[in-house]
Nucleic acid binder design. Sequence first.
DNA 1: TATTACCCTACTTGTTTGGTAGGATATTGT
DNA 2: ACAATATCCTACCAAACAAGTAGGGTAATA
Lengths: 143, 143
Amino acid sequence: MSMLSNKAQYAFRALTYLVDKYNQGPVLISDIAKKKKIPLKFLENILLELKKAGILDSKKGKGGGYYIKEHPSKTSVAAVVRIVNGPISMLPCVSLYFYERCANCDEKNCGLHDVMEQVRDATLNILEKRTLEDLASGRESLG
Amino acid sequence: MSMLSNKAQYAFRALTYLVDKYNQGPVLISDIAKKKKIPLKFLENILLELKKAGILDSKKGKGGGYYIKEHPSKTSVAAVVRIVNGPISMLPCVSLYFYERCANCDEKNCGLHDVMEQVRDATLNILEKRTLEDLASGRESLG
DNA sequence: TATTACCCTACTTGTTTGGTAGGATATTGT
DNA sequence: ACAATATCCTACCAAACAAGTAGGGTAATA
């Protein structure tokens, strides 16, 4: 299997909720966990990770919580995937952010490399353009 | 991580070798393992799996070995990925061959679903068209 | 200064991945 | 026939990872 991890799916569910609450002040972790049915402590880890990566910001103490840092249209789906799920490419040797040379393979003359490079480009062409805004419940259309 | 597994990469390396030897009779597992630097017993499992899936065929006894069943242009890269690596889609709820309903998510009104559906289509558009033939060492061009 | 709520480290449990071991079975040359 | 060859099959093992839990530390605020 190589799908998005459970963690990544939780992250997107939480982010969707936060998009819906954008500009309405901090949202409690416990609130998100309850509404989106995500294990509380696990969600804590995920949100913290997204904060460290610069997607979210938080406020401590009473009246605190998490909220999306910039306008939802500023954060791409690709960025989120990379943070909570890792590489987007199907091979290390075609990854832009997680590149690793492949063992026993001449990249200049490797058919698989070429195919996977095309897949990467096609995928990124979508994931880099789509943003958190596209995940919101009330969105109009995806064009 | 959600890249192709080590196993899948081994599979493609082995298949590349078999494409190069197409129509030259059965090839020994030990030959492939040696030339492509793949652990012998592990490779046995992989080739067997590809045989059961109908990609390869084999001959036992002296002069035996593995060989590609149909013409290399008949087997898509997508088919191989599904056999040795599983789903191609990033979410179960957009998978064609490994579909599963997603928990707590209305597919009809889910932004992430729509995005991942597009990614799936873009990916399959490439992986279904590319074949084992494209992996061969001596190929001319990828057009 | 007590309460709230995020922050942080560490741990546990179950599953998957990447192999290995050893023999059973089928084929073929002599 | 029979020995050699080479695939086929079942089971096992260790390390890595995923998913989730525990428990307290720290900062803000009323």
